[in-house]
Design a protein around this nucleic acid. Structure first.
Length: 750
DNA sequence: GGACGTACTTTCTAGACAGCATGTC
DNA sequence: CTAGAAAGTACGTCC
């Protein structure tokens, strides 16, 4: 089917022809035939890179040309910006007819909101599913103007964490805009028809790919495909390294999936010594530039390790990296400078980062309840599907590694030739229902118990199950919400002020209940930073740190020593709860270190986490401390004095990772925890003090460039040429390399 | 003395969304 | 109730 033949405005057709797209892929053509451009609902369950985005684009552009508005829902922030950037290239397309201006695109995620004064004035809005939920909870008016909804990666309905949110959000949207077109995009799953049926849509089901994908299993020096075999030369002890070197020889790049961060790092190191031998001069030079960039953007040991790998043309990638390092690795790989990325499943879904060959070094993942477990077929397909760059690689290959003939046949049967699992709604659990029942009632989608049941009947859960099975759980949730003062009334369900606040703060009602309870119990004379930090760390919305074997003794001692700082009496060390309690305290200690200005390097070593993790922990903690602050405002009369101001201060300190004395300096744009500390320790403790100092002094401390910016920021024009010296980067890097510091939590506390 | 080999023991375990109001080193 | 890979340790062998 030709693009030209489609019922679309001419400007749209010209746009695609100009970008070299003339012919639709078969699944796209099928979607058109099934009414994509006629407002029909649709579920496209097709492989990655088979043109799902284009399919969605066509529908959105068609809708906008008819005066509509589109919402594009994605599961990841990174994906949101990727789509946002893509859709912005439409700005030149005059879809809306002459004189109506160009197409406008907005983005809304937790950490990034479009600059547009009013998000709703855009024609396309890209948002994460949680943000969409939050916008609904805040009764955003333009939600009703949406005429087309695209849901990317709907198979996430199956996720226990985030599936229920997506499900309830879609149910609400369908209730709100009954005439709205829904286009759902999914990986190939077992029961795609069931999802399509729930969405009252037609199904486009296909395995078609633009680039051929060969899936094989490596055993004893050969990759075995269906009907063919490829010999791999043994250049080292390590099978995966040999497969990798073989790919490089053919001019391809490799993506290696590992089951843990540690393994991904160690593979990148190990492969590095061999990969380095294959690099030519220009590549080495390009890599050296990346190495410098990595060092500049890192304050930890991990940065040095990454730099060492990148110098050799390899890299690792996992959620512990900071965002700069992630970007450098991803871009370096796209530019074909970095030859291999050894990664945890971070790269399996989401970002568009294909490679010639994918090596899956472990198809098992650790589960605390069941030990090492084989990953789902769906996850395997996502990883294997990364192989083969459309238009660039002649083909893609994915390789599993087996140690025996039996294992190999097992892998063929259970992965390569297997169908992906069915998707199952996870809305039935108390955890999921508690929060979504509250939001449903707060938003007026249900005002009685019967109304609530009617709403639940419209969910995917009800589509798959009999709802009588969860009646008990629903009633338990309603009781919970009543007991904790978030809901009142028996026949009519009315949200209280607290209930509304909890819903709009986007926290779990259980978190809300813990916090309110803790605030009421806290006694003024015992309250420390730890009191409040531990309070938010025991909340189900907080992510918790693991307890390692060596931590037990230390954490135990800390709990004993600081026992009166907690709002509750710590459980006895023999009780099961004690295990949890220790993890909460350990997490609180990390945040405590962060706000006491411990360096990132120290924190990452002490707690065995990455820079990215520290920021992630701080991020959640800040959100929960903000929520605590708002809740404290609501129950102020029932609390000890001074708690409110303490909470507010902590919120700021977590945001900046700074002690109280730096709050004034740190709120200046361009000044963070590190620079503020330098200024403060040199006697420049306030904005006033800086204003009355001279730029030369400040330059000595934070560098001439930043100093100039700082003075501009404070409304002082900098007439003077800043004095001061050049960069200290080299010496700093050296010293951090030389330092032999403590490596575990216990070393630090002694 | 030291590089390497082997067998046994210990250790550790993926990812990432949200509020609010604008910017870290 | 359930795992398995890598890193660490202790000891042995060969040059």
């Amino acid at each position: 089917m030709k693009i030209e033949s489609l019922d679309l405005p001419e400007s749209v057709i010209r746009f695609y022809l100009d970008s070299g797209i003339e012919e639709l892929y078969p699944p796209q053509a099928e979607a058109i035939e099934k009414g994509l451009l006629e407002g029909k609902n649709l579920l496209a369950a097709i492989p990655t890179a088979s043109g799902k985005t284009l399919l969605a684009e066509l529908a959105m552009l068609k809708a906008i040309s008819n005066g509509g508005k589109a919402l594009y829902i994605v599961p990841l922030r990174a994906l949101a910006s990727e789509k946002f950037d893509r859709f912005r290239t439409f700005s030149s397309v005059s879809v809306k007819g002459e004189g109506n201006g160009g197409l406008r695109v907005g983005i809304s995620t937790g950490d990034f909101e479009s600059r547009d004064e009013w998000l709703g004035s855009n024609d396309i809005i890209v948002a994460t599913s949680e943000k969409t939920d939050s916008l609904l909870r805040n009764e955003t008016s333009w939600m009703q103007e949406i005429t087309t909804i695209v849901v990317d990666e709907v198979h996430l309905l199956d996720s226990a964490n985030r599936g229920p949110t997506l499900e309830v959000t879609l149910t609400k949207l369908m209730k709100l805009n009954p005439g709205c077109q829904i286009i759902a995009l999914s990986a190939t799953v077992g029961n795609a028809y069931e999802i399509a049926d729930w969405l009252k849509g037609k199904l486009v089901l296909s395995e078609w790919r633009p680039t051929r994908l060969q899936e094989g299993v490596y055993l004893n020096g050969n990759i075995n495909f269906h009907g063919s075999q490829k010999r791999i030369e043994a250049r080292s002890q390590d099978d995966a390294v040999n497969i990798l070197l073989d790919t490089l020889e053919e001019g391809g790049q490799c993506l290696v999936f590992e089951s843990s961060r540690k393994n991904s790092v160690s593979f990148a190191k190990r492969a590095g010594t061999k990969v380095a031998e294959t690099l030519d001069k220009p590549t080495r030079k390009a890599l050296d530039e990346l190495v410098e960039e990595i060092i500049e953007n890192g304050e930890t040991e991990a940065a040095n390790e990454l730099a060492k790998c990148v110098r050799n043309g390899t890299a690792f990638h996992h959620a512990g990296l900071n965002s700069a390092h992630r970007r450098i690795v991803e871009d370096g790989f796209r530019a074909n400078k970095i030859k291999v990325i050894s990664s945890t499943p971070t790269l399996a879904a989401g970002l568009n980062l294909p490679a010639r060959r994918v090596i899956i070094r472990s198809y098992r993942r650790y589960d605390p309840n069941y030990g090492m477990q084989p990953i789902p077929v769906l996850d395997y397909k996502q990883m294997a599907g990364r192989a083969g760059r459309p238009h660039l690689d002649p083909y893609g290959e994915s390789v599993l590694i087996a140690k025996s003939y039996n294992e190999m046949t097992g892998l063929f049967d259970n992965y390569i030739d297997a169908d992906a699992e069915d998707i199952w709604s996870k809305l039935g659990s108390e955890n999921a229902l508690r929060t979504h029942i509250l939001s449903t009632i707060v938003n007026g989608f249900a005002t009685t118990r019967d109304g609530l049941l009617e709403f639940i009947e419209a969910t995917f859960f009800a589509h798959q199950n009999d709802t009588w099975g969860i009646m008990d759980v629903v009633d338990e949730c309603l009781d919970f919400l009543r007991i904790h003062g978030m809901l009142e009334g028996e026949d009519t369900l009315l949200p209280t002020v607290l209930g509304r606040l909890v819903s709009t703060l986007y926290i779990d009602p259980l978190s809300g209940a813990y916090i309110v309870d803790g605030l009421k119990k806290a006694k003024a004379e015992n309250i420390t930073d730890m009191t409040l930090l531990h309070l938010i760390c025991k909340t189900p919305d907080m992510r918790q740190l693991y307890m390692r074997a060596s931590d037990y003794e230390v954490i135990n001692d800390i709990i004993m020593a600081r026992s009166d700082e907690f709002v509750e009496i710590p459980p006895r060390s023999k009780e099961v709860d004690y295990e949890w309690f220790m993890a909460e305290v350990k997490t609180a200690l990390l945040v405590e270190d962060w706000i006491n200005e411990k360096s990132l390097d120290q924190i990452t070593k002490k707690f065995g986490v990455g820079e990215g993790d520290v920021h992630a922990f701080a991020d959640i903690a800040e959100w929960l401390m903000h929520s605590t602050s708002r809740l404290a405002g609501l129950i102020a009369p029932e609390m000890a004095k001074d708690i409110s101001s303490h909470v507010a201060l902590l919120e700021k300190r977590i945001h900046y990772g700074a002690s109280s004395d730096l709050i004034e300096l740190v709120s200046i744009r361009g000044i963070g925890r590190v620079r503020a500390r330098k200024l403060y320790d040199s006697g420049l403790k306030t904005v006033q003090a800086i204003k009355s100092s001279d730029i030369g002094t400040v330059s000595e401390l934070i560098g001439p460039k930043t100093a100039r910016k700082l003075f501009e920021e404070l409304g002082l024009t900098s007439g003077l040429r800043p004095s001061g010296s050049g960069d200290g980067i080299k010496s700093e890097t050296m010293s951090s390399l030389m330092e032999r510091e403590q490596s575990t939590f216990s070393d630090f506390e002694k």
